[in-house]
C-alpha cells in the first residue's frame, strides 16, 4: 500500500497557487456567500423589530452594491486566514511565469505573495501591523495566518477567510472542568455571545471548538467558521447542540446590530475533538454577518 501511495507524486506550480490565492482574496471580500445572503433574506420574515428589519435590508443592499461595484462588503477586509489541506504526495515546484519573472519560494511564501497581490490589486484594506507593540502597518496585509493539514493522496485544497477583528476581539476560550459537562459548555458559549452583543456586528456567525487542548480548541473554532451555515454537524448530539444554542442565542434579544430583536445569530457551527481526562476546552470564535470564505482545489 505504501508503494502505491508513492507512485503518485503530483507537482503543483507555485505561480498557480499565487494566482489562485490572489483571485480568492478579492472575490471573497466582494461577494457575500450565498448561505449568509439567503439566511439574511429569510430572517426578515422572522424579525419583529422594525429597526432590525431596516438593518437587514441595509445589509442586503450593501451586498448588492459591493458585488456590482466590485468593492469590499466590509472595510475590514481582515487578517487573511488559510486552512491548507495538502496531500503528502504533492510536490510544490518553483516555475517560470515569464522570461524575466521567476517565481521561487516556499508554499508559505507563495500564499503570502498571493495575499500581497490580492490585497493590493483588489483595493482591500491593509490591516496588519508588524509587531503587537511597535504596530507599523506592513502595507500589504501580510503575513497571513496559515494552518496546515497533511493528508493522504495528491490533492491540494486551500480555504480562505478574511477575518475582521471587531468580532475577533469578542472571541473567548474557556478551560472548563469535565464535571461542568455539556450544560457548562452551553453556559460559557451563551455568555460569550451575550458579551459580544452589539460589538461584533450581529447577526453573528459562531464557530465553536470543543475538546482537544488549549490551541486545538481555538483552531477548531476558527475552522468551524469555514463551514456553510446551512450544514450541520454529522454527529447527532452535536447537531442537536448547534440547534439548541442557536435558539437560545436568538432568545438573548440582542438583535441586528444590537438594536434589539429576534435575529442575533445566523448560524452556529461546532467541531469537537478528543481531549484529556482532566480537561474540557471550549473556544468560541465570534464572527459577523459578513462572514466570508472561499476555497480552491489545485
Amino acid at each position: 500500500m505504501i508503494e502505491k501511495s508513492f507512485d503518485h507524486i503530483r507537482s503543483v506550480n507555485l505561480s498557480k497557487i499565487i494566482e489562485a490565492i490572489k483571485e480568492m482574496t478579492i472575490s471573497a471580500n466582494y461577494n457575500l456567500n450565498n448561505d449568509i445572503r439567503s439566511s439574511l433574506k429569510k430572517s426578515i420574515e422572522i424579525e419583529e423589530s422594525k429597526t432590525g428589519i431596516n438593518i437587514i435590508n441595509q445589509l442586503l443592499t450593501n451586498a448588492d452594491i459591493a458585488s456590482n461595484q466590485k468593492m469590499p462588503i466590509c472595510q475590514d477586509t481582515g487578517m487573511a486566514v488559510f486552512f491548507v489541506e495538502i496531500g503528502q504526495n504533492v510536490h510544490i515546484i518553483n516555475d517560470i511565469k515569464n522570461s524575466n519573472n521567476i517565481i521561487k519560494g516556499t508554499l508559505e511564501e507563495g500564499i503570502n505573495e498571493g495575499v500581497r497581490q490580492g490585497y493590493t490589486e483588489g483595493y482591500l484594506r491593509k490591516s496588519v501591523v508588524n509587531d503587537p507593540f511597535e504596530r507599523i502597518n506592513t502595507g500589504d496585509n501580510t503575513p497571513a495566518i496559515i494552518h496546515y493539514d497533511i493528508i493522504a493522496g495528491d490533492s491540494l485544497k486551500i480555504s480562505f477567510a478574511p477575518k475582521g477583528f471587531g468580532s475577533e476581539n469578542m472571541s473567548r476560550i474557556y478551560m472548563i472542568k469535565p464535571g461542568d459537562g455539556i450544560e457548562g459548555a452551553k453556559k460559557v458559549i451563551l455568555e460569550a455571545i451575550d458579551a459580544a452583543g452589539p460589538n461584533a456586528c450581529p447577526p453573528m456567525v459562531i464557530g465553536i471548538g470543543i475538546g482537544g487542548s488549549f490551541e486545538k480548541a481555538a483552531i477548531l473554532a476558527k475552522k468551524a467558521l469555514f463551514r456553510s451555515i446551512n450544514e450541520s454537524s454529522k454527529i447527532p448530539y452535536v447537531k442537536d447542540l448547534e440547534e439548541e444554542l442557536l435558539q437560545k442565542a436568538n432568545n438573548l434579544g440582542i438583535g441586528p446590530q444590537g438594536m434589539g430583536g429576534r435575529i442575533t445569530v445566523l448560524g452556529i457551527n461546532i467541531l469537537t475533538y478528543p481531549t484529556h481526562i482532566a480537561g474540557l476546552p471550549v473556544a468560541i470564535n465570534i464572527s459577523c454577518h459578513a462572514t466570508r470564505h472561499a476555497e480552491v482545489n489545485l
Binding site: M71, P72, Q75, Y123, S127
Partner: peptide, 22 residues
C-alpha cells in the same frame, strides 16, 4: 470611527463602515 478600504481610481473612498467604538 472608520478605517476605509483604499479608493479605486476615480472613486471618492473605498468601503467605509464603522469600527467598534469601545
Amino acid at each position: 470611527y472608520v478605517g476605509p478600504s483604499p479608493a479605486k481610481l476615480g472613486a471618492v473612498i473605498g468601503s467605509a463602515g464603522p469600527t467598534t467604538s469601545y
